[in-house]
Nucleic acid binder design. Structure first.
Lengths: 323, 323
DNA sequence: ACTTGACATGTAACGCGTTACAACATTTAG
DNA sequence: CTAAATGTTGTAACGCGTTACATGTCAAGT
């Protein structure tokens, strides 16, 4: 394995000049550049990434923190990895599986200079704790955060959820159930607010049992609808879901149980993923890919010292067969 | 930002001793260890990951090479990330989007010591080219490879596909269509072989137009079934798919077109992902998670110098509503 | 002819741990 | 009581680029 020193010795120039060639510095004569490039070629030289990172203090790597990779994350992850790579950054995945200690590994890795920045997709640690890592590098979150240090690319969940609510209300549904996601998250908070405001404004029937938090997955959706159908005082006739996976679970289980969709039950998903398209689920179009790009741009801005703003994004509702 | 030198100076011991404390070497007296740990604590010291990597030549990072992250990859990726992390390795995602040059970046990164090893999920470069990177570190592939240097954790596709074929044949279907994946891949090759052997053995009706390669996604599945239904000489009455996404596309489009499943069309997916469960698609259980673990173990073995074997895995067919 | 500046290149310190080898002290065995 | 073994710690080189600053050269400007 050849190194820069050898190239320098062989070419007769100093390490500095060789380094300049590597970094395309203009302060090298064309003749010198060619000689050095030729020798590099002959020795099959590539610079050692770790040495560069140690020296510059940059790893060109960004960590993505998440509980686990699921269908909803897919467009976020894909878009982020893609965009980051276009800017020369690689993405490292940190999955916690819900274990705060494992999640912390990502933050420690930033402290140890293994990654230059972090994007949080979902996280299970205390926000104050995460905040204490901000001094080690930029942290941007997909979900909205209370902590001002951690910027978020989440959209205004209140508006998005209201869009879904008014859609089903407009179609005559009044017994609306809610499958919300992470309890105590800002996203969920905005959605709850929207529901409460809509309930008041449109005089919806309200039943505590119709609203649940902590519902994320296909299986949880399946279970939820089974429970909802058994509720005393009657089941809801519409349900808004935390994401499309939940909606998919509810839809397939409802079909199995011979519940007519959308006549007896309207279903609205969230995120408008491929899944919603495939299953024909009405969904609120969360422009996830664009959010991921925003996340990267915020990070690049912070890394570069320029405080970049994010472009504004808008929700849309895509109507399909479930409403 | 404190460093090892400072800890050494403050504690009165040498860098070597401090390093020994960090690495839990037994050759340090208890008293010394405590003094040094205390100072580390006070200075809020963490070792610099890049310095460690430069020094040891290991990054504790493994690259995952793929065209893009999709539903089928999900269990592979999740399982790999999880297992790797348990062994102290982080996973870096390299998506090529089908561009060989972008894909090569991953291989170059191994050459530059940015990652210790690579797992190939899907790849678009010439295998011979990839082979030339084997000298820089272990490369393991999910898909079967022709190159002996690149070990694979793929299962015997012939057997798995035959399982699916015999299942539908056993249920009386004889006009079997095939939606195969990547052309010219070993996986596809095995499946084609299985189909040809089965066609001969069970006297299946054969129609060139029923078999296609290059079908991977939900959308492609949708398009495919539309085309198949228009074929002169009649459409097939069963179809085996490259993966569950394709099966999902076919199923939903078939329903839209009022084709009765499974009466008029049997559908068999591959991989038995969450998607197949949700949509009730019969699928061949490719134990993807276990394959990912195998991949990691092969890599760890090669990194550690011990040639680890992989545990044998078996296919199963999970019957659901589409057959 | 002389200053000024542009350009090319070198020097040496720096970023930060790891580790082979040496050295010394203290037991333990004989 | 000495030699060998064991345990503790230090020295210094190594892994490999980057970069601020210094030096030297040559042409343009006056």
């Amino acid at each position: 394995m050849s190194n820069l020193d050898q190239i320098a010795k062989l070419s007769g120039f100093s390490k500095a000049t060789v380094s300049r060639v590597l970094n395309r510095s203009p302060h090298v004569s064309q003749a010198t550049r060619e000689i050095i490039l030729k020798i590099m070629e002959e020795l099959d030289y590539v610079p050692n990434g770790n040495a560069i990172s140690l020296s510059t203090g940059e790893t060109m790597q960004i960590g993505m923190v998440t509980e686990g990779i699921n269908e909803v994350m897919l467009p976020f992850l894909n878009s982020f990895v893609e965009t980051a790579s276009r800017h020369g950054y690689q993405t490292i995945i940190y999955t916690s599986g819900g274990d705060p200690a494992k999640e912390l590994q990502a933050f420690e890795d930033m402290r140890r200079k293994r990654v230059d920045a972090l994007v949080i997709s979902t996280c299970v640690n205390d926000q104050a704790l995460l905040g204490s890592y901000c001094k080690y590098g930029p942290i941007v979150s997909w979900q909205r955060m209370e902590l001002p240090e951690i910027q978020s690319v989440a959209m205004n969940q209140y508006d998005g959820y209201m869009l879904g609510l008014e859609h089903v209300i407009g179609r005559g549904y009044t017994r609306i159930a809610n499958a919300w996601g992470r309890p105590a998250s800002m996203n969920t908070f905005g959605r709850i607010q929207a529901y409460q405001d809509a309930a008041r404004k449109y005089h919806l029937e309200v039943n505590q049992e119709w609203s649940q938090t902590g519902i994320f997955s296909i299986r949880q959706g399946e279970e939820l609808i089974r429970r909802l159908l058994l509720i005393a005082g009657g089941p809801p006739n519409a349900i808004l879901c935390a994401n499309d996976m939940v909606a998919a679970g509810i839809l397939s289980e409802a079909r199995r149980l011979k519940v007519k969709v959308p006549e007896e039950l309207a279903i609205v998903g969230f995120d408008n993923t491929e899944l919603a398209h495939t299953l024909g689920i009405t969904s609120i179009n969360n422009p996830i890919g664009a959010q991921a790009q925003n996340a990267l741009h915020l990070i690049l801005g912070k890394l570069g010292g320029t405080e970049a703003g994010q472009q504004e994004l808008e929700f849309q509702l895509v109507q399909r067969a479930t409403t």
